[in-house]
């Protein structure tokens, strides 16, 4: 019973939340607050509409590119910072300053410089993802046991090989935790910057529908974006677990923030 209930619990939670929504909206009788069922019914038209589908897929493609570039840049930097005091001392204050900057808010300025094209949108996502990935890679690399590196050195591994073949795998659980946060952040940054720029994408569809009073579309889009976040996170968690099946299980609740 318990074993069956555990994987089903998030599904039950979803159903419970939708049910609560349904009841709340029936109780409130507010025109601008459609019921969960009405909103769910509005999803297929959005997903079959060619233009909005292309729009959303283009957003996701930019998100994937921005996320990938951020990983390629942040993981090596974080590992290097974790293993070299000087590198950490060099970058940490700068990163501390960048930390509280709202990345999606850079959208108008970046658009002013680079135009409204894909480059601006991808760059903003890149900026949004980088920091947590750097931070977690840094922490992971810093925590690698000295004796493990010594053991590698005694086997004849050069410093470069040690970074690649000992620090990287040893820090992998922590790095992937950063990537998981980064993935959700990529989605958040994407949606937020689209809401701010109002050019295209899921965020734009959301606010266009709001402006035109199509409230069921608004709520349907909320479900779509929410489901994207939940599914991306769940899919990444499966990959992560498989990649680090050798490691001690850690706290597995997602820590996401925007």
């Amino acid at each position: 019973m318990n074993g069956l209930l555990k994987p089903l619990a998030p599904v039950l939670a979803c159903c419970g939340l939708l049910l609560a929504w349904q009841l709340a909206s029936l109780g409130l009788k507010n025109d601008s607050f459609p019921t969960a069922l009405e909103s769910l019914r509005a999803i297929p038209p959005i997903l079959t509409d060619k233009e909005s589908l292309i729009n959303i897929l283009a957003s996701l493609r930019r998100m994937a590119i921005g996320f990938g570039l951020a990983l390629a840049f942040s993981i090596p930097l974080g590992l290097l910072m974790g293993r070299s005091r000087a590198t950490a001392a060099f970058f940490n204050p700068l990163l501390m300053l960048i930390y509280p900057v709202p990345k999606a808010a850079l959208m108008p300025i970046i658009m002013l410089w680079l135009g409204v094209g894909d480059i601006s949108k991808t760059l903003v996502i890149f900026l949004g993802v980088s920091l947590p990935v750097i931070y977690h890679s840094f922490e992971g690399a810093k925590a690698v046991e000295e004796k493990m590196l010594w053991s590698g050195a005694a086997m004849g591994l050069s410093p470069g090989e040690r970074l690649l073949r000992i620090v990287l795998p040893a820090a992998l659980p922590e790095i992937l935790t950063g990537c998981r946060t980064g993935l959700v952040l990529a989605l958040i940054t994407m949606v937020t910057s689209e809401m701010i720029a109002r050019q295209s994408g899921a965020g734009n569809i959301l606010f266009n529908a709001l402006d035109m009073g199509q409230y069921d579309t608004v709520f349907a889009m909320i479900i779509i974006v929410g489901a994207m976040g939940i599914c991306l996170d769940a899919a990444f968690e499966i990959v992560r677990r498989w990649l680090v099946r050798w490691s001690e299980p850690q706290f597995d609740m997602p820590l996401s923030f925007s």
Binding site: E145, K147, M148, W150, S151, A153, A154, M155, G156, I166, P169, A170, L172, V244, W246, S247, E248
Partner: peptide, 28 residues
Amino acid sequence: GPGPDRGPVFQEFALFPWKSVLGNVMYG
């Protein structure tokens, strides 16, 4: 510096956690 002529065994074991038992022993 360290070299394969001097092999350490540490109190903390310092095994490579991402390698199986066999993988650890084959590493060197």
